[in-house]
Amino acid sequence: MSIKSLPSRADKKKTVVSRFTDLFEGKYFAWLLLAPSLAMIAFFIFYPLYRGLTLAFTHTILIESPDSTFVGLDNFRQLLKDPLFWTSTRHTLIYLVIGLISQVAVGLFAAVLLSRERRMIWLLRIILVIPWFVPPVVTAYMWRFMLDPDFGIMVKLAHYIGLDLGGAGIWGDPDKTIYGILFVELWRSYPFFMLFFLAGIQGIPKDMRESTSVDGASALQHFRFIILPLIKPVMFISSLLGAIHLINSPTLILLMSNGGPGDSTLVLPLYAFRKAFQNFDFGYASTISVAVLVAIAGFAIVYVRFIGFGKED
Protein backbone atom coordinates (compact mmCIF):
# COMPACT_ATOMS: atom_id res chain seq x y z
CA MET A 1 0.00 0.00 0.00
CA SER A 2 1.04 3.51 -0.66
CA ILE A 3 0.66 4.51 2.98
CA LYS A 4 3.62 2.40 4.00
CA SER A 5 6.03 4.13 1.66
CA LEU A 6 5.22 7.58 2.96
CA PRO A 7 7.65 9.17 5.39
CA SER A 8 6.57 9.21 9.01
CA ARG A 9 6.67 12.41 11.00
CA ALA A 10 9.43 14.70 9.95
CA ASP A 11 10.58 16.09 13.30
CA LYS A 12 11.06 13.38 15.84
CA LYS A 13 11.63 14.36 19.44
CA LYS A 14 12.08 11.19 21.41
CA THR A 15 9.83 11.78 24.38
CA VAL A 16 7.98 8.98 26.11
CA VAL A 17 4.76 10.00 24.46
CA SER A 18 6.20 10.20 20.99
CA ARG A 19 7.90 6.88 21.48
CA PHE A 20 4.48 5.42 22.28
CA THR A 21 2.79 7.05 19.32
CA ASP A 22 5.69 5.99 17.10
CA LEU A 23 4.65 2.43 17.76
CA PHE A 24 1.59 3.15 15.70
CA GLU A 25 3.70 4.25 12.71
CA GLY A 26 5.38 0.91 12.16
CA LYS A 27 4.18 -2.42 10.98
CA TYR A 28 2.39 -3.12 14.25
CA PHE A 29 -0.08 -0.31 13.57
CA ALA A 30 -2.94 -2.65 12.74
CA TRP A 31 -2.31 -5.06 15.57
CA LEU A 32 -2.12 -2.26 18.13
CA LEU A 33 -5.55 -1.03 17.09
CA LEU A 34 -6.94 -4.55 17.05
CA ALA A 35 -5.41 -5.68 20.32
CA PRO A 36 -7.97 -4.27 22.80
CA SER A 37 -11.00 -5.71 21.03
CA LEU A 38 -9.32 -9.05 20.42
CA ALA A 39 -8.26 -9.21 24.05
CA MET A 40 -11.83 -8.62 25.15
CA ILE A 41 -13.16 -11.27 22.81
CA ALA A 42 -10.54 -13.72 24.01
CA PHE A 43 -11.33 -12.99 27.64
CA PHE A 44 -15.13 -12.88 27.46
CA ILE A 45 -15.88 -15.27 24.60
CA PHE A 46 -13.08 -17.70 23.87
CA TYR A 47 -12.08 -18.34 27.48
CA PRO A 48 -15.73 -18.88 28.56
CA LEU A 49 -16.21 -21.10 25.51
CA TYR A 50 -13.28 -23.25 26.61
CA ARG A 51 -14.60 -23.27 30.18
CA GLY A 52 -18.07 -24.23 28.98
CA LEU A 53 -16.72 -27.10 26.96
CA THR A 54 -14.71 -28.45 29.90
CA LEU A 55 -17.50 -27.89 32.44
CA ALA A 56 -19.66 -30.27 30.41
CA PHE A 57 -17.39 -33.12 31.51
CA THR A 58 -17.52 -32.25 35.19
CA HIS A 59 -19.84 -32.56 38.12
CA THR A 60 -20.35 -28.95 39.20
CA ILE A 61 -23.26 -28.15 41.45
CA LEU A 62 -22.67 -24.84 43.18
CA ILE A 63 -25.03 -25.36 46.11
CA GLU A 64 -23.24 -28.62 47.02
CA SER A 65 -19.66 -27.45 46.67
CA PRO A 66 -17.80 -24.77 44.75
CA ASP A 67 -15.41 -27.33 43.23
CA SER A 68 -15.94 -29.32 40.11
CA THR A 69 -14.90 -32.94 39.72
CA PHE A 70 -14.10 -34.50 36.38
CA VAL A 71 -16.61 -37.23 35.54
CA GLY A 72 -15.84 -37.93 31.90
CA LEU A 73 -18.86 -38.73 29.80
CA ASP A 74 -21.26 -39.28 32.73
CA ASN A 75 -23.26 -36.14 31.98
CA PHE A 76 -23.68 -37.16 28.36
CA ARG A 77 -24.90 -40.62 29.36
CA GLN A 78 -27.40 -39.00 31.69
CA LEU A 79 -28.42 -36.63 28.88
CA LEU A 80 -29.30 -39.47 26.50
CA LYS A 81 -31.53 -41.02 29.14
CA ASP A 82 -33.16 -37.71 30.09
CA PRO A 83 -36.73 -37.60 28.73
CA LEU A 84 -36.90 -33.84 29.26
CA PHE A 85 -33.86 -33.43 27.01
CA TRP A 86 -35.64 -35.22 24.17
CA THR A 87 -38.83 -33.27 24.77
CA SER A 88 -36.95 -29.99 24.58
CA THR A 89 -35.11 -31.19 21.49
CA ARG A 90 -38.44 -31.83 19.80
CA HIS A 91 -39.72 -28.38 20.78
CA THR A 92 -36.51 -26.79 19.55
CA LEU A 93 -36.95 -28.50 16.18
CA ILE A 94 -40.57 -27.36 15.88
CA TYR A 95 -39.54 -23.84 16.80
CA LEU A 96 -36.69 -23.91 14.29
CA VAL A 97 -38.53 -25.37 11.31
CA ILE A 98 -41.79 -23.43 11.56
CA GLY A 99 -40.01 -20.25 12.64
CA LEU A 100 -37.54 -20.37 9.78
CA ILE A 101 -40.06 -21.19 7.05
CA SER A 102 -42.58 -18.56 8.15
CA GLN A 103 -39.97 -15.83 8.59
CA VAL A 104 -38.22 -16.50 5.29
CA ALA A 105 -41.54 -16.54 3.43
CA VAL A 106 -42.89 -13.33 4.96
CA GLY A 107 -39.47 -11.66 4.80
CA LEU A 108 -39.12 -12.48 1.12
CA PHE A 109 -42.59 -11.20 0.33
CA ALA A 110 -41.97 -7.94 2.17
CA ALA A 111 -38.56 -7.51 0.54
CA VAL A 112 -40.02 -7.89 -2.95
CA LEU A 113 -42.69 -5.34 -2.12
CA LEU A 114 -40.17 -2.87 -0.76
CA SER A 115 -37.64 -3.31 -3.55
CA ARG A 116 -39.56 -1.14 -5.99
CA GLU A 117 -38.20 2.37 -6.29
CA ARG A 118 -40.73 4.99 -5.37
CA ARG A 119 -41.00 8.09 -3.30
CA MET A 120 -40.63 7.71 0.50
CA ILE A 121 -39.91 4.01 0.17
CA TRP A 122 -37.06 4.37 2.69
CA LEU A 123 -39.60 5.51 5.27
CA LEU A 124 -41.67 2.37 4.71
CA ARG A 125 -38.53 0.28 5.06
CA ILE A 126 -37.76 1.85 8.41
CA ILE A 127 -41.33 1.39 9.65
CA LEU A 128 -41.32 -2.28 8.74
CA VAL A 129 -38.03 -2.81 10.57
CA ILE A 130 -39.34 -1.33 13.85
CA PRO A 131 -40.57 -4.66 15.34
CA TRP A 132 -37.06 -6.03 15.22
CA PHE A 133 -35.86 -3.24 17.52
CA VAL A 134 -38.71 -3.34 20.00
CA PRO A 135 -37.32 -4.65 23.30
CA PRO A 136 -38.17 -8.37 23.66
CA VAL A 137 -39.72 -7.67 27.05
CA VAL A 138 -42.10 -5.17 25.49
CA THR A 139 -42.83 -7.50 22.56
CA ALA A 140 -43.54 -10.36 24.93
CA TYR A 141 -45.97 -8.58 27.25
CA MET A 142 -47.57 -6.52 24.52
CA TRP A 143 -48.49 -9.67 22.62
CA ARG A 144 -49.42 -11.59 25.74
CA PHE A 145 -51.95 -8.87 26.37
CA MET A 146 -53.22 -8.84 22.81
CA LEU A 147 -53.52 -12.63 22.77
CA ASP A 148 -55.10 -12.83 26.21
CA PRO A 149 -58.28 -14.96 26.10
CA ASP A 150 -60.27 -12.38 28.08
CA PHE A 151 -58.74 -9.03 27.16
CA GLY A 152 -56.96 -9.66 23.87
CA ILE A 153 -57.86 -7.74 20.74
CA MET A 154 -56.25 -10.42 18.58
CA VAL A 155 -58.45 -13.11 20.07
CA LYS A 156 -61.48 -11.01 19.21
CA LEU A 157 -60.22 -10.39 15.66
CA ALA A 158 -59.49 -14.10 15.27
CA HIS A 159 -63.05 -14.77 16.39
CA TYR A 160 -64.36 -12.56 13.58
CA ILE A 161 -62.63 -14.68 10.95
CA GLY A 162 -63.88 -17.85 12.58
CA LEU A 163 -60.80 -18.82 14.57
CA ASP A 164 -61.67 -19.76 18.13
CA LEU A 165 -58.86 -18.98 20.56
CA GLY A 166 -61.11 -18.76 23.61
CA GLY A 167 -61.41 -21.15 26.51
CA ALA A 168 -58.03 -21.78 28.05
CA GLY A 169 -56.61 -19.49 25.38
CA ILE A 170 -53.21 -19.67 23.80
CA TRP A 171 -51.38 -19.40 27.10
CA GLY A 172 -53.31 -22.10 28.92
CA ASP A 173 -53.43 -24.77 26.24
CA PRO A 174 -50.18 -26.77 25.98
CA ASP A 175 -50.88 -27.58 22.34
CA LYS A 176 -51.26 -23.96 21.30
CA THR A 177 -48.68 -22.05 23.33
CA ILE A 178 -45.65 -22.78 21.15
CA TYR A 179 -47.52 -21.64 18.04
CA GLY A 180 -48.61 -18.49 19.81
CA ILE A 181 -44.99 -17.70 20.60
CA LEU A 182 -43.97 -18.56 17.03
CA PHE A 183 -46.57 -16.07 15.83
CA VAL A 184 -44.97 -13.37 17.96
CA GLU A 185 -41.49 -14.46 16.91
CA LEU A 186 -42.57 -14.02 13.29
CA TRP A 187 -43.68 -10.45 13.97
CA ARG A 188 -40.39 -9.69 15.64
CA SER A 189 -37.90 -11.52 13.44
CA TYR A 190 -39.04 -11.44 9.83
CA PRO A 191 -37.58 -7.91 9.30
CA PHE A 192 -34.15 -9.47 9.76
CA PHE A 193 -34.71 -11.60 6.66
CA MET A 194 -36.44 -8.74 4.90
CA LEU A 195 -33.35 -6.53 5.20
CA PHE A 196 -31.06 -9.26 3.93
CA PHE A 197 -33.30 -10.08 0.96
CA LEU A 198 -33.82 -6.41 0.20
CA ALA A 199 -30.07 -5.92 0.01
CA GLY A 200 -29.85 -8.94 -2.28
CA ILE A 201 -32.59 -7.72 -4.60
CA GLN A 202 -31.11 -4.24 -4.76
CA GLY A 203 -27.85 -5.82 -5.87
CA ILE A 204 -29.59 -7.04 -9.05
CA PRO A 205 -29.09 -4.59 -11.94
CA LYS A 206 -32.15 -2.41 -12.53
CA ASP A 207 -32.42 -3.01 -16.27
CA MET A 208 -32.88 -6.73 -15.70
CA ARG A 209 -36.62 -6.28 -15.21
CA GLU A 210 -36.87 -4.24 -18.40
CA SER A 211 -35.25 -6.93 -20.49
CA THR A 212 -37.37 -9.73 -19.03
CA SER A 213 -40.54 -7.75 -19.61
CA VAL A 214 -39.51 -7.16 -23.22
CA ASP A 215 -39.25 -10.92 -23.50
CA GLY A 216 -42.80 -11.14 -22.17
CA ALA A 217 -42.11 -12.42 -18.69
CA SER A 218 -44.72 -11.73 -16.04
CA ALA A 219 -43.77 -10.28 -12.68
CA LEU A 220 -44.15 -13.71 -11.18
CA GLN A 221 -41.89 -15.31 -13.79
CA HIS A 222 -39.35 -12.56 -13.27
CA PHE A 223 -39.40 -13.34 -9.57
CA ARG A 224 -39.17 -17.09 -10.08
CA PHE A 225 -36.43 -17.15 -12.72
CA ILE A 226 -34.41 -14.00 -12.07
CA ILE A 227 -34.79 -12.73 -8.52
CA LEU A 228 -34.97 -16.04 -6.70
CA PRO A 229 -31.83 -17.62 -8.24
CA LEU A 230 -29.86 -14.38 -7.84
CA ILE A 231 -30.59 -13.89 -4.17
CA LYS A 232 -29.93 -17.54 -3.35
CA PRO A 233 -26.54 -16.82 -1.74
CA VAL A 234 -28.12 -14.14 0.46
CA MET A 235 -30.95 -16.49 1.41
CA PHE A 236 -28.42 -19.14 2.24
CA ILE A 237 -26.39 -16.99 4.64
CA SER A 238 -29.36 -15.29 6.26
CA SER A 239 -31.19 -18.57 6.83
CA LEU A 240 -28.14 -19.99 8.54
CA LEU A 241 -27.84 -16.96 10.81
CA GLY A 242 -31.60 -16.92 11.40
CA ALA A 243 -31.62 -20.62 12.26
CA ILE A 244 -28.83 -20.14 14.75
CA HIS A 245 -30.75 -17.27 16.28
CA LEU A 246 -33.89 -19.42 16.55
CA ILE A 247 -32.05 -22.30 18.19
CA ASN A 248 -30.01 -20.12 20.50
CA SER A 249 -32.18 -17.41 21.80
CA PRO A 250 -34.80 -18.46 24.29
CA THR A 251 -35.67 -14.86 25.16
CA LEU A 252 -39.24 -14.74 23.90
CA ILE A 253 -40.11 -18.19 25.25
CA LEU A 254 -38.52 -17.32 28.58
CA LEU A 255 -40.64 -14.19 28.83
CA MET A 256 -43.91 -15.41 27.38
CA SER A 257 -44.36 -18.89 28.82
CA ASN A 258 -41.12 -19.76 30.64
CA GLY A 259 -41.34 -23.25 29.16
CA GLY A 260 -44.93 -23.83 30.26
CA PRO A 261 -47.70 -24.74 30.51
CA GLY A 262 -46.22 -27.96 31.83
CA ASP A 263 -43.07 -28.35 29.77
CA SER A 264 -44.87 -27.79 26.50
CA THR A 265 -42.62 -24.94 25.33
CA LEU A 266 -39.37 -26.01 26.97
CA VAL A 267 -36.56 -25.62 24.41
CA LEU A 268 -32.94 -26.66 24.82
CA PRO A 269 -31.37 -23.31 25.77
CA LEU A 270 -34.17 -22.69 28.25
CA TYR A 271 -33.64 -26.13 29.75
CA ALA A 272 -29.94 -25.38 30.14
CA PHE A 273 -30.76 -21.99 31.65
CA ARG A 274 -33.10 -23.67 34.13
CA LYS A 275 -30.57 -26.30 35.13
CA ALA A 276 -27.92 -23.65 35.66
CA PHE A 277 -29.82 -20.98 37.51
CA GLN A 278 -32.57 -22.89 39.27
CA ASN A 279 -30.73 -26.09 40.20
CA PHE A 280 -27.24 -24.54 40.02
CA ASP A 281 -26.15 -27.66 38.18
CA PHE A 282 -23.55 -25.91 36.04
CA GLY A 283 -21.98 -29.13 34.79
CA TYR A 284 -25.18 -30.60 33.37
CA ALA A 285 -26.30 -27.22 32.02
CA SER A 286 -23.03 -27.01 30.09
CA THR A 287 -23.60 -30.53 28.78
CA ILE A 288 -26.96 -29.46 27.35
CA SER A 289 -25.30 -26.38 25.83
CA VAL A 290 -22.61 -28.50 24.24
CA ALA A 291 -25.38 -30.66 22.77
CA VAL A 292 -26.86 -27.46 21.32
CA LEU A 293 -23.48 -26.51 19.89
CA VAL A 294 -23.11 -29.97 18.32
CA ALA A 295 -26.64 -29.72 16.94
CA ILE A 296 -25.90 -26.31 15.40
CA ALA A 297 -22.64 -27.53 13.90
CA GLY A 298 -24.44 -30.59 12.55
CA PHE A 299 -27.24 -28.50 11.16
CA ALA A 300 -24.76 -26.11 9.53
CA ILE A 301 -22.86 -28.98 7.89
CA VAL A 302 -25.99 -30.68 6.60
CA TYR A 303 -27.33 -27.34 5.45
CA VAL A 304 -24.17 -26.39 3.58
CA ARG A 305 -23.91 -29.81 1.93
CA PHE A 306 -27.48 -30.28 0.82
CA ILE A 307 -28.89 -26.83 0.35
CA GLY A 308 -25.77 -24.76 -0.19
CA PHE A 309 -24.08 -26.81 -2.87
CA GLY A 310 -26.47 -29.63 -3.63
CA LYS A 311 -28.87 -27.76 -5.87
CA GLU A 312 -26.52 -25.96 -8.23
CA ASP A 313 -28.50 -25.97 -11.42
Binding site: R51, G52, S249, P250, A272, F273, A276, A300
Partner: peptide, 20 residues
Protein backbone atom coordinates in the same frame (compact mmCIF):
# COMPACT_ATOMS: atom_id res chain seq x y z
CA UNK B 1 -13.14 -14.84 13.82
CA UNK B 2 -15.53 -11.89 14.09
CA UNK B 3 -18.03 -13.90 12.04
CA UNK B 4 -17.47 -17.20 13.81
CA UNK B 5 -18.30 -15.57 17.13
CA UNK B 6 -21.85 -15.24 15.92
CA UNK B 7 -22.14 -19.00 15.53
CA UNK B 8 -21.31 -19.75 19.17
CA UNK B 9 -24.47 -20.52 21.15
CA UNK B 10 -24.91 -17.79 23.72
CA UNK B 11 -26.30 -20.23 26.24
CA UNK B 12 -23.01 -22.12 26.28
CA UNK B 13 -21.28 -18.89 27.31
CA UNK B 14 -23.81 -17.82 29.94
CA UNK B 15 -22.66 -20.15 32.69
CA UNK B 16 -18.90 -19.59 32.23
CA UNK B 17 -19.39 -15.83 31.94
CA UNK B 18 -21.37 -15.89 35.14
CA UNK B 19 -18.54 -17.78 36.86
CA UNK B 20 -15.96 -15.44 35.35
Amino acid sequence: SYILIRLIPGVLLLVPIYIL
